[in-house]
Amino acid sequence: MTSCHIAEEHIQKVAIFGGTHGNELTGVFLVKHWLENGAEIQRTGLEVKPFITNPRAVKKCTRYIDCDLNRIFDLENLGKKMSEDLPYEVRRAQEINHLFGPKDSEDSYDIIFDLHNTTSNMGCTLILEDSRNNFLIQMFHYIKTSLAPLPCYVYLIEHPSLKYATTRSIAKYPVGIEVGPQPQGVLRADILDQMRKMIKHALDFIHHFNEGKEFPPCAIEVYKIIEKVDYPRDENGEIAAIIHPNLQDQDWKPLHPGDPMFLTLDGKTIPLGGDCTVYPVFVNEAAYYEKKEAFAKTTKLTLNAKSIRCCLH
């Protein structure tokens, strides 16, 4: 018999989150649709729960009410004593943790798909938090293969000092899905179709896995975050240069030392320094102006996964 890495157990509980950011409308629209008619997301033997994560922000069509829901799922915020004085999103995070967690427990949901849009030209993107997770690498390989020839990129946010504390991190297997470009507060049919297909293929993978299909060893190309880059700023902290036209919409493309990065209003080009080629992502993302992030630098690498098969009882 072929030796293989056996994944822990079959997958039982899956959640699909929309509206973690209330103005990213593809996930909101799909989740609302699936709450009314969820036939397309159901798979035999699998509990799939669509869920609106930040209903107040969705109602106002804004990213958040008090603070970013997708950055506060750490033990400090989840452990705060519940009171009306807490920011709305912290209270909501505790409610979500109660419903789908608790985080880092045996009772937490197996998989959470968190649906997002970006204003950046990132196409279909899967966000991975753990480079050693054979199950998710296999799932992402399946999704990428199923979507081809449509490109699907994998963004690895594993980093020693950049801690995200994402909404989906309460699950055993957290999956971020990011599709763009799409303006905030807008629905685009092409973007919706791409996100819908990503979810379909992900659920198909889980179904095949649960039925005992063995997935042979595989490898995927990923883009691992190195650092986030702020806009150049003046002495008052105001933005002093904008994304250069040569960099705009060039997510995932190589940016070499000396290539144009920013452009000042008086026409001066600010190039990339250093001696390493990087791959920019979230270029000129609207939501990241407040976070002082013009783009993120990534490096390209390959992740390998062992063969996996479900432990059938």
Rank of each mutant, 00 (worst) to 15 (best):
D114E: 08
F140Q: 04
D193L: 12
D74V: 10
A39V: 10
I308G: 03
L162V: 14
G79P: 11
V281W: 04
T62M: 13
G27D: 06
A93Y: 12
A57E: 02
P183V: 02
W252E: 04
D68Y: 01
S146G: 09
E89V: 01
Y231C: 00
V281H: 04
T119S: 10
L75T: 14
E84I: 14
Y142I: 04
I11G: 02
V90C: 12
T299E: 13
V28H: 15
A305G: 08
T20I: 04
A241R: 03
P260W: 03
M122P: 00
D204A: 04
N236I: 07
D110P: 00
T2N: 13
S146R: 14
K253Y: 06
K224G: 01
E76A: 12
K32V: 01
V281C: 15
A15T: 00
I191T: 00
N70M: 08
L203A: 03
S307V: 02
H159P: 14
F282T: 02
N304K: 14
L247Y: 05
G237A: 03
G101Q: 06
A93E: 06
T125I: 00
G185D: 02
F282D: 06
G79I: 11
L86F: 12
I72Q: 14
I308L: 15
C152S: 04
V175E: 02
R91S: 13
P174A: 13
L187C: 11
H256Y: 09
F51N: 03
P50Q: 05
I157D: 15
G101I: 01
G22Y: 07
I157Q: 15
D66M: 03
D107C: 12
R71A: 14
D85M: 13
E211A: 14
F113M: 07
K200Y: 09
Q12L: 04
P280D: 05
R56F: 11
I220W: 01
I143H: 05
Q138F: 06
A219D: 14
I143R: 02
I127A: 06
L46M: 14
L312N: 15
C4A: 14
G180D: 04
I177T: 02
L69E: 06
K292R: 12
C311T: 14
H201I: 05
R56P: 11
A171T: 07
M198P: 04
R196I: 04
T167R: 09
L156R: 03
N77Q: 12
I199S: 03
T298R: 04
S161Y: 10
G185Y: 05
L272F: 15
I157R: 15
I243T: 00
A39E: 14
I41G: 05
L265S: 09
D251T: 02
E24R: 01
V229W: 00
G185M: 05
V283T: 06
I226Q: 10
G18V: 00
G180L: 06
T44G: 11
F29S: 15
I41N: 00
Y223P: 04
K300T: 06
N133T: 00
E8D: 12
I143F: 05
L247F: 02
T269V: 14
R309G: 07
T264W: 02
K213R: 14
P216N: 06
K32H: 09
T118S: 12
A39H: 12
T44E: 13
K228L: 09
M198H: 04
D230E: 14
H313T: 15
P260I: 02
G18T: 03
G27V: 03
K200N: 12
T145E: 14
D66H: 11
P280I: 05
N117Q: 03
Y223S: 05
K253M: 10
T298S: 12
D266Y: 00
P160V: 08
F73V: 12
K60L: 10
I6A: 14
E238N: 12
F140Y: 12
D68L: 00
A241D: 06
V28K: 09
P87D: 11
Y223R: 05
V28I: 13
H159V: 08
N37H: 11
T62C: 13
N77M: 12
E178A: 15
L69G: 06
R56Y: 12
R71H: 13
A93S: 11
Q42I: 07
F140I: 06
L203I: 07
I6G: 14
I206G: 06
I41E: 04
E178H: 15
K224H: 07
S83C: 12
T299K: 13
P160W: 08
L147V: 11
H5W: 10
V281I: 15
L203C: 00
C4P: 15
T62A: 14
V175C: 00
W34S: 03
R233V: 14
K144I: 15
H244D: 02
G273I: 09
N54D: 06
E290V: 09
I206M: 01
A93L: 12
E84F: 13
L78W: 11
R132W: 01
S105N: 13
H256L: 08
L192T: 12
D275V: 07
I111Y: 02
A219P: 00
L272V: 08
F113V: 06
L247Q: 01
I220C: 06
S161W: 07
A219K: 11
E24K: 00
C124W: 04
R92Q: 13
I206H: 00
T277G: 00
G258C: 08
N210F: 00
L30W: 04
N97T: 12
T166N: 14
N97W: 09
K32G: 09
D193R: 09
P232E: 00
A171S: 10
K297T: 12
K306A: 13
E84M: 13
V222K: 02
P271M: 08
A7S: 14
T2G: 14
I137Q: 00
A287P: 10
P87F: 09
G185Q: 05
D204W: 01
T277W: 00
A165V: 10
G273P: 09
I6M: 14
V179I: 10
V222H: 05
V14L: 00
K163Q: 13
Y155S: 07
N246D: 12
S161G: 13
I112K: 02
C218H: 01
L203H: 05
E158P: 06
P260E: 05
N246Y: 09
A287Q: 13
L86H: 11
S108W: 07
P149W: 04
T125C: 14
E9D: 14
D104V: 10
A287H: 14
T167M: 11
E290D: 13
Y164G: 15
Y289H: 15
V90M: 13
L203V: 01
Y153I: 00
W252K: 02
K172T: 07
D251R: 02
V179W: 05
V14M: 01
H201V: 07
I52K: 05
P216V: 02
S108Y: 10
L86G: 12
W252T: 08
D259I: 02
G267E: 06
G273T: 13
Q184N: 15
L25F: 08
L203N: 02
G123N: 00
T269N: 08
L247G: 03
E8H: 15
N133D: 11
K172F: 02
G274V: 04
F135L: 07
D275I: 06
I239W: 01
F282A: 11
N133C: 11
L86K: 11
E84T: 13
Y223W: 01
G19L: 00
R92I: 11
E40L: 04
Y155D: 06
G212M: 01
L156C: 14
E9F: 07
Q182V: 13
Q94N: 10
I6P: 15
L150D: 11
L192Q: 06
K49R: 12
S83P: 12
K197P: 03
A7C: 09
L25N: 08
N121A: 09
L192I: 14
A219R: 08
Y288W: 09
E106D: 13
G38R: 11
E47P: 05
M82K: 13
L301T: 10
P280G: 01
A305V: 01
D107G: 13
Q250R: 12
C152W: 05
D204R: 05
N121F: 01
K253H: 09
N210L: 00
L187E: 03
K32C: 01
I127F: 11
T2C: 08
R71P: 09
I225S: 14
R63P: 12
L136R: 04
T119E: 08
I65V: 14
F295S: 03
K197F: 08
I11H: 03
A165P: 14
I270C: 00
N117M: 02
P217D: 09
E285C: 13
L75V: 14
L75D: 14
A241P: 00
D259F: 00
N304W: 15
P254S: 05
K172M: 02
S105G: 14
N134T: 12
C311M: 14
N236D: 10
E89H: 03
F282W: 11
I111R: 03
F17G: 06
T119W: 04
K13S: 08
N77P: 11
R43N: 03
L86I: 12
I199Y: 04
V222P: 04
N97S: 13
Q194H: 09
L255R: 02
